[in-house]
Each structure stands twice: as structure tokens, then as C-alpha cells.
């Protein structure tokens, strides 16, 4: 991947307005390539600035890989891709110590996880052992090999794609790993009009290896990303909003259709995502709408439903929607 020598937008000093402007230009640039998926693009950016990871679910051919490639181009960050297969080994992900016969010692060879943007393509095609290799990288942003901890470059974000669970040859991701994804996004087939725009884009010569040809230029560099991540952490969260988040996440644990509710990590994720959303809208404080906007993305992969509820056709989206209609929001009180 060729890095852009001079990013367009300087990272500092940041204000809510400049954060929002940068966010908007970044989303706009990527949406030029990933047509009709504006919501997904925004969610991915929110996860990026919230220091989270994203699990994207959708059938092949909906532009998941294109999205990550376009993101890496717009961010001027390093990008690597791992195609998960049933015979993929953990060391294929993390790297390992290889004996150098000339030096007569073991030398560490980095795996593809040592990057800033990691695309774990079709992550549910690998067995659990290999999937678990990503756990430490995603949570600690480091990997431990032969007792040696090796830090990953910053920023680091994993964008994993998976096919729907009903597809043949897939392995369900373990709950522990699912919980480490900030968001789970679902990409559906585009509407006819959007698909037509995609065709026009390809007629214009879209080439994932040469985004400059279709006008996608770098918008931000890694320093800018880190600065925006830092700014997002300064966004104020009122106690009433915190209470709302706690009540919302807590409600998932007592819902009649839910077998396993969301963990406190989900609450943390919701706070982080809401902060970025607030900053992206030019605010330095979180409002309940920020929480509501991200509730589905944060919670949908963290809930396990009772089998009888699933048999009745209840989905996690149904449960989340019902909870959003049950839990009162904090309102305007001065």
C-alpha cells in the first residue's frame, strides 16, 4: 500500500466543528466508492475513532472488502488482509519465530496482524482456534508470541467480514470474540437505483488498486486519526445519559426472549460510540439520540436468544427495538 506523503487535513487543533467537518469529508470520500452504504461507512468511521472493531455480515459481493480498501486509502494507513479458511493456522495470523540458519537463532516474522487496518475476510470460515488468535490483538492491541508481547501499530482496527451463519462451511464465532467487536453491521442487497450507480462507477473505471482514478484521495493520516480518537474521549457524557445506557443494556439481561444479555463491555462500547457520534455532529456532549443510534450495532451480536424465541421468528433486532421502546430516555430538564 502506498502511503500518501501529505494528508489533506491537519489533525490539530480539534474542535467539535472541525471534528465534524473532518468526519463528514472522510465519510463523503469513502461513499464515493462504496455507493449506497452511507450508514455502514459512518458506523465504520465511528468504530475507528472509538477504537473499536467491526464485524460486517453480508453475503459475498456486497462491497465489504471494497469498503475496507477505500477506508485505508482515505486514511493513509497501512492495510492487510487475511482470507480466513478452514486450514488457516493461528501463526498465519500473528506471525512467529522462525529459525534463521545463517544467524543460528530464531527470528520473529510479523504476521499480517501487524498493520493498522486489518481485514479479516470471511472470519467465520476458520475454526475457533484460529479465530481466537485475534482475541488478544483486538482487545489488547498486542500479540504475545513465545512469551514476548509485541505491540501493534496505532491506530489499529479490525474489520472482519462474515457470511451469514446459515451458509455452508462456516463456524460460529465464540461469544468472547463477538463481544470484542464494537459493532456488528449487516449489509443487505442494494436497491435497484443504487446498483445502477455501482454499475456506472465500474463503467467509469473503478479499480480497487487505483482509487485515485475515481477521485478518492487521502483525507487523514494516522496522526489525525489518533488526534480524533483522543478528542472523542473528551466528549462529555451526562450522568442521565450514563444511566440511560445502563438501563438499556441492563434491560437486555431481563428480556424474556434473551438467553444471554449484553455485558458491561457493551455499555462501554455504547458510551464510546455515542461520544464519537456526538463529536461527528459537532457537539462536545452526548445526547440520548447518540445512544439510540448505535444501540442496534452495539448490541445485536452480543445477545443470545432463547431457542424458542428464535423458533418464533424473534430476532435480536426485534428485541433491541422493543427495548428502545420500553426504556425511557432522559429528557430536557435544565
Amino acid at each position: 500500500m502506498t502511503l500518501s506523503p501529505e494528508p489533506v487535513l491537519p489533525p490539530a487543533p480539534l474542535t467539535p466543528d472541525s471534528f465534524a467537518a473532518t468526519f463528514e469529508s472522510l465519510a463523503g470520500a469513502i461513499s464515493k466508492i462504496v455507493v449506497g452504504q452511507e450508514h455502514v461507512v459512518e458506523e465504520v468511521l465511528v468504530a475507528l475513532f472509538a477504537k473499536g472493531h467491526v464485524l460486517i455480515e453480508g453475503v459475498p459481493g456486497l462491497g465489504k472488502t471494497l469498503l475496507v480498501r477505500a477506508l485505508s486509502r482515505a486514511l493513509s494507513c497501512s492495510f492487510k488482509r487475511i482470507q480466513f479458511t478452514p486450514d488457516l493456522m493461528p501463526s498465519d495470523v500473528t506471525g512467529g519465530n522462525i529459525f534463521d540458519s545463517r544467524e543460528n537463532r530464531f527470528q520473529f516474522v510479523q504476521g499480517p496482524v501487524f498493520t493498522q487496518l486489518l481485514l479479516a475476510d470471511e472470519v467465520n470460515r476458520a475454526p475457533a482456534k484460529t479465530q481466537a488468535a485475534l482475541l488478544e490483538a483486538m482487545q489488547e492491541r498486542q500479540v504475545t508470541i513465545d512469551g514476548v508481547e509485541r505491540a501493534l501499530p496505532r491506530p489499529f482496527i479490525t474489520l472482519a467480514t462474515q457470511n451469514p451463519i446459515e451458509s455452508q462451511g462456516t463456524y460460529a464465532l465464540p461469544e468472547a470474540q463477538l463481544d470484542r467487536f464494537l459493532f456488528k453491521l449487516v449489509i443487505k442487497y442494494p436497491e435497484a437505483e443504487i446498483e445502477k450507480q455501482i454499475l456506472k462507477l465500474h463503467l467509469a473505471g473503478l479499480d480497487p488498486a487505483d482509487f485515485a482514478r475515481v477521485g478518492l484521495e487521502p483525507v487523514l493520516d494516522e496522526a489525525g486519526v489518533l488526534a480524533m480518537q483522543l478528542f472523542a474521549e473528551s466528549v462529555r457524557v451526562d450522568e442521565a445519559v450514563l444511566d440511560y445506557i445502563v438501563r438499556l443494556v441492563g434491560a437486555t439481561r431481563s428480556h424474556r426472549s434473551v438467553f444471554l444479555g449484553a455485558s458491561p463491555r457493551a455499555s462501554v462500547a455504547l458510551v464510546g460510540a455515542s461520544r464519537v457520534r456526538a463529536a461527528a455532529e459537532g457537539r462536545d456532549f452526548v445526547v440520548p439520540d447518540d445512544v439510540k443510534d448505535h444501540a442496534a450495532s452495539v448490541l445485536r451480536h452480543r445477545l443470545s436468544l432463547h431457542p424458542d424465541a428464535e423458533l418464533e421468528g424473534v430476532t435480536t433486532e426485534d428485541v433491541i427495538e422493543a427495548l428502545l421502546k420500553e426504556v425511557p430516555v432522559p429528557r430536557s430538564a435544565a
Binding site: 451526562d238 442521565a240 445519559v241 457537539r283 456532549f285 445526547v287 430536557s332 430538564a333 435544565a334
Partner: peptide, 15 residues
């Protein structure tokens, strides 16, 4: 109005 109300409530800013 909503913007101002929320600035006051959640942003702790005096209108």
C-alpha cells in the same frame, strides 16, 4: 430550541 435545551441539559452549558 432542542439544541439549546440539550446544550443546557447534557452539555452543562448555561444558556
Amino acid at each position: 430550541l432542542v439544541r439549546e435545551v440539550e446544550r443546557t441539559k447534557f452539555g452543562h452549558l448555561a444558556p
